[in-house]
Design a protein around this nucleic acid. Sequence first.
DNA 1: AACCGTTGCCAACATCTGTTGGCAAACATG
DNA 2: CATGTTTGCCAACAGATGTTGGCAACGGTT
Lengths: 193, 193
Amino acid sequence: MTPSAQSAQPRRSDATRAAILRAARERFAADGYERATIRAIAADAQIDPSMVMRYYGSKEGLFAAAAEFDLRLPDLTSVPPARLGEVLVRHFLARWEGDETLVALLRAASTNPGAAERMRGIFADQLTAAVAAFGTDRALTARRAGLVASQVLGLAFTRYIVRLPPMVDTAPDELVAWIAPTLQRYLTGTPPS
Amino acid sequence: MTPSAQSAQPRRSDATRAAILRAARERFAADGYERATIRAIAADAQIDPSMVMRYYGSKEGLFAAAAEFDLRLPDLTSVPPARLGEVLVRHFLARWEGDETLVALLRAASTNPGAAERMRGIFADQLTAAVAAFGTDRALTARRAGLVASQVLGLAFTRYIVRLPPMVDTAPDELVAWIAPTLQRYLTGTPPS
DNA sequence: AACCGTTGCCAACATCTGTTGGCAAACATG
DNA sequence: CATGTTTGCCAACAGATGTTGGCAACGGTT
């Protein structure tokens, strides 16, 4: 993300690189992995398709770069325990509406094994880590995180991908009110026998 | 589905048609719409690619035929009201494990507009109809159905598509125990202000 | 000014895609 | 048997796709 992590001096082509990445995210989000063609991405970025190859190696490499994503989950230990669910849904909704990277990842994960692997990594690592902050049983923690992921990804899938009318039309606040108790129970509820 | 609805006599090519449809469902489920090529489907069915075109017109036509699906939702009015959630999750899980058509539809819906439209139709029509059986407020009914869809599709997405380990490893009965209360509340819970 | 790495474009490649038309064999019908 | 229809395969087309190599222009360094 930050342009000069290992390469000390910024290159002259950083603008081009960024334009490609932005166009790639848009196309991947709108069309999915296979329908988003390098030519179309290059056209959006107003450069030649061969530049995409030079800077990102391959289509897979481009996607890997475009799908870099940090959920930026808050520290759940500093959240009032009773409001965990609400904070989480609200955070996810905001994160989703503000950055199309997640939609790109979601669309691509359905058909591209690499994208699915990336998605697994994000939710297994970041979400599980956040949930683990207030639980000791590792298997139970993983299960709680998985359940939260199932509801949150289902929300995203129905709202941004399939676009089910009731899920698209409902205001974020009302969605939060409905879904928060679900996450709350997945996070803190007593596990079934 | 039934081979002789309008055409009185069964054709000699019915076996071929069925083989194509079966192979198509498998490929669409495994690879998604764009990666499932007509050539691969034809190879699986052990016939020539051109036969697919003759019998189903186009790739879209083939998908439309392969993605025909009935949720076979039970009549919710004859279910004990307190067990609505449990019955629903269990039904969906069984339906999903037993028929790969839904997985095909789910994968394809991410990238193919026609598949998304089909998915919208299935959940808007069949699920909303089932939910409408015990509610009068139409907007609220649609919202309840949408919420149920979000959790059920999220379950399917994480378990069958992304294959999040905790969602794959957890036994169906335990998933039911966790998720049933969620659907129960979406179906019968008091709506937020 | 001479030099060299960078940036960019053009043209082309090999391959794969959905799709089409024609032709031979199998079958059914008179 | 003769006729028409159905089933199947082969070969091919037109277009799109990821990817590559070469070549000109630019920019900084010595």
